[in-house]
């Protein structure tokens, strides 16, 4: 077993321990579930040369959680004030992240960041919907890119 598979197996075991609330009776079912999940992850995302870096991962998660709170607050404020407060627009941005998993992570994460919703990704051109075009959307995207890049080993 490669070290990458071993790490995945450990993460899945930990997940099962949480889901089963640590009940020892569920260990048999857990073994089956972990094996099935490991096989699925091996098939869908074969362990390649790419390894995720833990430090940048944690930094990204903290940034993501903090900004999804900001995003929730903003959209709650807009909902209370009604559609008159909206300045929606479609924007296009050229990503600096490489195509593949880094860009996909960005595109999906943007849906929970303040005021942005990804609409289409073609190559590196991202089309997105913004609730409030007066916000510094592009600056926020660059900040998010700077946190996603290092996860995959790119320049910060």
């Amino acid at each position: 077993m490669s070290s990458s598979l071993l790490r995945r197996a450990l993460a899945l075991l930990l997940l099962w321990w949480m889901l089963s609330e640590g009940l020892p009776e569920s260990a048999g079912l857990g073994a089956v579930a972990v094996a099935a999940a490991l096989a699925a992850s091996h098939y869908l995302l074969p362990p390649g040369s790419r390894t995720l870096r833990l430090g940048p991962c944690i930094r990204f998660l903290l940034y993501f959680v903090a900004n999804s709170v900001r995003g929730g607050l903003q959209v709650a404020g807009l909902a209370l004030r009604g559609p008159a407060a909206l300045r929606p627009a479609m924007l296009e941005v050229e990503l600096t992240l490489p195509e593949g998993p880094p860009a996909l992570l960005l595109v999906n994460a943007l849906g929970l960041m303040p005021g942005t919703l990804s609409v289409r990704l073609q190559g590196r051109r991202l089309r997105l919907h913004s609730l409030d075009a007066r916000q510094p959307i592009e600056r926020d995207i660059r900040a998010l890119e700077a946190r996603i890049g290092p996860i995959f080993g790119g320049a910060p």
Partner: peptide, 27 residues
């Protein structure tokens, strides 16, 4: 509550998606 409000008050599918995804997840 804010998420439901946004879903009801926002004018198009894109802005309703904003409300649904962000507010409900924070809730």
């Amino acid at each position: 509550f804010a998420g439901t409000l946004g879903l009801l008050r926002f004018p198009d599918i894109y802005s309703r998606l904003h409300a649904l995804a962000k507010a409900d997840n924070l809730g």
